[in-house]
Amino acid sequence: MAKVKYYYDPEKLAFHKILPKKRKQFGYFFLFIFTAALFGLLAFFILLNTSLLETPKQKRQAREIAAFKTNYKLLSKKMDLLTEVLDELEVRDNYIYRSYFNAAPIPSEQRRSGLGGINRYKEFEEFNNEELLISTNERMDRLSKQIAIQSLSLDELVDLAKGKEKLLASIPAIQPVKNEDLKSMASGYGYRTDPFTKIRKFHEGMDFSAHVGAPIYATGDGTITRANNQLSGYGNLIEITHGFGYKTRYGHLSKYNAKQGQKVKRGDIIGYVGNTGRSTGAHLHYEVYYQGKVVNPLNYYYGSISAKEYELLAEQASHENQSLD
C-alpha cells in the first residue's frame, strides 16, 4: 500500500494530505497494465509449450506421433540389417553357390535395377512428411525386389542341385583321344602360327596328332547337334551340345560313328581321326565352348588323366608352335 504524505500549513497551523498529480496517477496505472499484460503473455507462451492446455485428443495424438517415431527408428534399423544380410547372401550366391553349379552370377545391376513407373509414389505427395514416406517406401520396394530375385536364384540352385549328377556327366571332362593312340599333342590353345598363311593367329582348340582311324570319344554326355562337313575349315565335323552351357567340336574326322540327333554318353566312340578339311596332317582338332564362348580344353581333362600326365600335356600345349589346321 502506497504511503500517504502530508505537508504543514503554518498559516492554518494544520497538516494537509499531499494529493498526487493526475498525470502521475495515469502513468502508474499504465505501467501497472503494461506489466500485467507482459506477464500474462509470458505465462501464455509458457503454457503453450507445456501439456497443461492440451486437450485429451491432442495428448492422444502426441502419444501416437511419439510411437510412430519410435517404430520408424526400429523399422529403419531392421531394414539396415536386412540389407546387410542380403548383400552377404548375394556375394555367397554369386561366388560360391552359383559357381559350384557352373551357373553364371546374377549381375548387380539386375539385382538393384529401378522399379519403373512414372510418379510411383504420387499418393504420398500431399503429406507434410512426403520425403520420408517416399524414401521409406522406395527402400522397402527395392528390398522386396532383391528378395524376389534372390528367391528365384535359390529356386534355380535347387533345380541344379537335383540335376547335379546330370551336370557332372555333361561337363566335357576327358581327353577325346586316348594317350595310347596319340603320336603327340601337336598344338595347344592360344596364339599359334597358321600352317598355310604363316601368320600368327589365335588357335581356338587343341590338335591331337594320331594315326588315321584312331577312335574319338565324346568327352561328356550330350546330343549330337552337327555331323557334317558344312562348317568351313573343319572337314568332317561332329558337334555335341551337352547342356548347362557346354558344347564341344571334333574336326577333321575320317568317318563318323554317330549321327545328328543321337544322344551319347561320355566315352562313346563318335568318330575316327582323319585329315579332312583345312588340315596338314592326320589329327583331331578339339574345341570346348562354355556359355557361347570358346575356352581352353586343357582346363577340363580331370576325368581321364593323372596329375603327371596333365602336367606333361600342359607343358606341351604351352609351346607356341605351328598348328595343324
Rank of each mutant, 00 (worst) to 15 (best):
R120G: 05
N71R: 02
I118R: 13
G117A: 06
Y121G: 09
F39W: 06
Y8A: 05
L19H: 07
L133M: 09
Y121H: 12
M79Q: 08
P10K: 15
N129Y: 11
F124A: 04
V85M: 04
E88D: 12
S113R: 08
D80S: 13
R112F: 15
Y28V: 12
F127P: 02
F29H: 08
L53D: 02
R92Y: 10
Y28H: 10
F34H: 06
T55R: 05
F127W: 05
K77C: 04
A66F: 09
Y72M: 12
L31W: 08
L89E: 08
D93S: 10
L75R: 02
S76F: 05
P10V: 13
L82S: 07
P107K: 08
V85D: 07
N49Q: 09
E109K: 14
Y121I: 11
K77M: 11
Y121L: 11
E84H: 04
R112Q: 15
L74V: 14
E64S: 06
F32G: 15
L42E: 06
I106F: 00
L89Y: 05
Y72A: 11
D80E: 15
D80T: 11
E54C: 10
G40C: 08
E130M: 06
R111T: 12
G117V: 05
R92W: 05
R111M: 14
R98G: 02
D93Q: 06
P107Y: 08
A66T: 15
E64G: 02
E131F: 10
E11W: 04
E109Q: 14
E90S: 07
F101T: 03
R92G: 06
L38R: 01
Q110N: 09
L115G: 07
P56K: 14
I18L: 09
R92Q: 10
N102P: 00
S113L: 02
R63S: 14
L13P: 00
Y100C: 01
F127Y: 15
Y72D: 10
N128H: 12
S108K: 05
Y97T: 11
L52N: 00
K69V: 04
E11Y: 11
I46P: 00
K77A: 14
R92P: 00
A66Y: 11
V85W: 00
L38P: 01
P107R: 08
E54A: 10
F45Q: 11
I96M: 07
K59G: 08
G40A: 09
L19Y: 08
A36T: 12
E54K: 15
K24F: 15
N94I: 00
Q61R: 12
K78Y: 02
G114S: 11
K73W: 01
F26W: 13
V85E: 12
M79N: 07
I106H: 01
F124W: 07
H16P: 02
P20M: 04
Y8W: 13
P105A: 03
Y97M: 05
V91T: 09
L53A: 12
V91F: 09
R63G: 10
Y95G: 03
F29D: 08
